[in-house]
């Protein structure tokens, strides 16, 4: 039994190690403490609401959020805006609907059931407006990058003057956390760029953290439920395992005495 567990453990840790090594280029990302990390991690509501504000005022002019609906903003485990707030947010966007009775498309104020309005009609339009680079959709962006939240958080603060010897084309910027260090997005954040309604000081660091938290939620909207359910499931499994273990001992004792 001991041997058995030892071997299983070795194999698991080997596999785990392989996955760590997947991230071939190891960069030291900026560290911050994320409230949603760990088995009991939860989102910081206020950070999510502020993060939405940063996304809305800064990112959303180029980056779409196509799998998210306005109704999600009210959902438990998310920013938990009140229904009235979310309705007001939705109504502040114009949504294309139709065709109407005359067969024409028309614009109407957004509703909770609408998906987030996209900044561009399509990917080609997005590329055309951004010098050929497509600003990626942000809904699952955190999960689509090897470094996850730490990467996004660092990237937003990683703009620097290029070291001597590195020449940059027009519309290309130097970022020490970007893969290959060249990025087509210019530095977006500057101190005091947005005015937080809760009075939080909008430093670059604060905004980067808030918007990254928001992006983590858009990528994993059920994270809190998952953590909660996982804890219950594992506690349950451990209890059942103990019960089965003693049942097993009892049952096997019937023949052990004979042997």
């Amino acid at each position: 039994m001991k041997n058995f567990i030892r071997i299983i453990f070795l194999i698991l840790s080997f596999i785990g190690h392989q996955f760590n090594s997947y991230a071939a280029e190891k960069v030291e990302y900026l560290k911050t403490d994320w409230s949603f990390k760990g088995p009991f991690g939860k989102f910081d509501r206020a950070a999510l609401q502020r993060g939405y504000q940063v996304y809305n005022e800064v990112c959303s002019s180029c980056h779409s959020m196509k799998y998210l609906s306005y109704r999600n903003l009210t959902q438990t485990g998310g920013p938990e805006f009140s229904e009235a707030q979310a309705k007001a947010i939705a109504a502040s966007f114009e949504v294309k609907d139709g065709p109407n009775a005359d067969g024409e498309m028309f614009l109407r104020p957004g509703r909770l059931s609408d998906k987030f309005v996209m900044p561009y009609e399509n990917e080609k339009a997005a590329q055309a407006a951004n010098g050929g680079a497509y600003p990626p959709d942000m809904t699952v962006l955190v999960k689509a990058r090897g470094g996850g939240v730490d990467y996004i958080y660092s990237l937003l603060q990683g703009y620097e003057d290029p070291p001597t010897g590195v020449s940059l084309d027009d519309g290309v910027y130097y970022n020490k956390f970007m893969y290959g260090n060249k990025i087509k997005m210019s530095n977006q954040l500057s101190d005091g760029l947005v005015e937080y309604s809760d009075g939080t000081n909008a430093t670059v660091e604060q905004m980067a953290k808030d918007v990254t938290t928001f992006l983590m939620w858009t990528a994993e909207p059920h994270l809190e439920t998952r953590h909660r359910m996982g804890f219950k499931a594992i506690v349950y499994l451990i209890i059942l395992t103990i019960l089965v273990y003693f049942s097993m001992k009892k049952i096997w004792s019937r023949i052990e005495t004979e042997v």
Binding site: G230, T241, V244
Partner: peptide, 22 residues
């Protein structure tokens, strides 16, 4: 019962992946 016991241990590992590092 022995298979069941081992299966439960396996499920704990499984659950860990599903719920915490999916």
């Amino acid at each position: 019962i022995k298979d069941g016991f081992a299966l439960l241990m396996f499920m704990i590992v499984f659950a860990f992946f599903v719920f915490y590092t999916p």
